[in-house]
Amino acid sequence: MHEVQKNDRSLWEVVGDYFRANSIWMKWYCTGCGAIEMPPTMTSRFDMEQLGMGPMATPRQADVLLITGYLSTKTLRRVIYSYEQMQDPKYVVGFGSCTLNGGIYYDSYATINQLDKYLPVDLYIAGCMPRPEAIMNSFGELIEMIKKGEAKGWKHYKENHEWYKANQMDSLGEVIIHDEFHE
């Protein structure tokens, strides 16, 4: 596996990273339980918008993909598809222990156990499920990472594309399903 080197960023990228860090639009993919703590995080009590973050409708517009919980194989295909539709630079945040190691569903026949085999995760938030405070905290962390140019999972994904693809194929068989369920 090819590791992304700590590269020197050009001035353009440094400035760009400053903007990206202060304006994170998220694609909140509601994959599992973790999604239930997103509304409190977004709404009046914790008010994510003060960090410059906000929900966006489609992956094209978003910067960060929130994987809020366990991923069934059926969902993982859609998540990968969504991730590939996003525009660089893009970041992935995994919520809860399920994305980390399968969590409570470690022996389930339908859910995967480790997200970073399939997508480059920049940041994990531990907990089942993470509390809004933890989410806010880790978003602060993400902002720091982007500012410093450390969140480069997207580069990693580009450079190790074969490795990721092979993993995806091993577990899923087929990422883009060709059966469209026409009736």
Binding site: T31, G32, Y70, S72, K74, T75, R78, Y105, D107, S108, Y109, A110, T111, F181, E183
Partner: peptide
């Protein structure tokens, strides 16, 4: 004109897991 529900995105196999 036609709507088809597609569940299963959150399927974790609870009924199987609970037996274990």
């Amino acid at each position: 004109k036609k709507a088809r529900p597609t569940p299963g995105f959150l399927h974790r196999g609870f009924e199987k897991l609970m037996e274990r």
